[in-house]
């Protein structure tokens, strides 16, 4: 495996960007083969935008190391006791990026094979 970069992004670095810029920034970083650990959580609409932009980028990718998409998961420190729906309701409380106490992990699919999540933990499986 080549060098692996893990980048932590504090809440303040994304909170004041527009949703469009936020999604673009995250995708730019992931395209550089970085695994992002983000303090906070995208709103559902932003997640949908992220998926749509990811698909566009896969289609347009012509580089030798082709972009194949992303793996993404979010976890809340309280999520052991929360259902998905309660987690979503918490996220909806903020219109856009929010949930300072939540952690989102995004990685490029060329590096991260799978992110397995259950209510209390996230496991990253990397490609060899």
């Amino acid at each position: 495996m080549n060098d692996l970069t893990i980048q932590f992004i504090p809440y303040s670095e994304l909170a004041y960007l527009t949703p469009y810029r936020r999604v673009k920034k995250l995708l730019e970083l992931v395209s550089e083969n970085k695994i992002l650990i983000i303090q906070g959580k995208l709103a559902p609409e932003e997640e949908a935008d992220l998926i749509q932009e990811t698909m566009k980028q896969i289609r347009e990718s012509k580089s030798r190391k082709k972009f194949k998409g992303i793996e993404i998961a979010t976890i809340s420190p309280k999520s052991k006791d929360l259902s998905i729906m309660q987690n979503i309701t918490e996220k909806l409380a903020t219109t856009f990026f929010g949930g300072r106490d939540m952690i989102t992990i995004i990685g490029p699919a060329t590096v991260v094979k799978d992110i397995r999540k259950d209510p209390s933990k996230i496991e990253l499986y990397l490609r060899k």
Partner: peptide, 10 residues
């Protein structure tokens, strides 16, 4: 699944 449901709830 989380993203789909979140968008439907919204």
């Amino acid at each position: 699944n989380v993203t789909i449901i979140g968008n439907l709830v919204a």
